[in-house]
């Protein structure tokens, strides 16, 4: 399976990555190689194998529902480019 430059640029946009036209050409080739490898894997006989959601064959450990203090405002708000009234400020996002 081949990936073209347009697809590379689209995926880059979705991931908010800056990819130049030059880079996109190189990336298209490399991503196509990866997908070709996946195509090969697809041919493996797996009909009798249970799908695996995670390579570790154990169950998710669960946490008890107990509150622990989580007020980090004094430490994290100053890290933001802008904040006010205990809120992080971002450019207006409403349409």
């Amino acid at each position: 399976m081949a990936i073209d430059q347009d697809t590379v640029l689209k995926v880059a946009h979705l991931a908010r990555l800056h990819v130049s036209a030059e880079q996109s050409q190189a990336l298209a080739g490399r991503l196509s190689d990866i997908l070709n490898m996946v195509d090969e894997l697809q041919q493996a006989e797996v009909d009798n194998i249970t799908p695996l959601a995670h390579p570790l064959d154990v169950s998710q450990p669960l946490r008890e529902d107990l509150v622990q203090p989580a007020d980090l405002r004094d430490r994290v708000l100053p890290l933001a480019p802008a904040s006010e009234g205990n809120c992080f400020l971002v450019p207006r996002v409403i349409e």
Binding site: N86, C87, F88, L89, V90, P91, R92, V93
Partner: peptide, 15 residues
């Protein structure tokens, strides 16, 4: 939550 009022043209974020 995104708060669109009271932030003079910016959006406030409360997590």
């Amino acid at each position: 939550k995104s708060l669109h009022e009271d932030f003079h043209g910016m959006t406030g974020i409360d997590l």
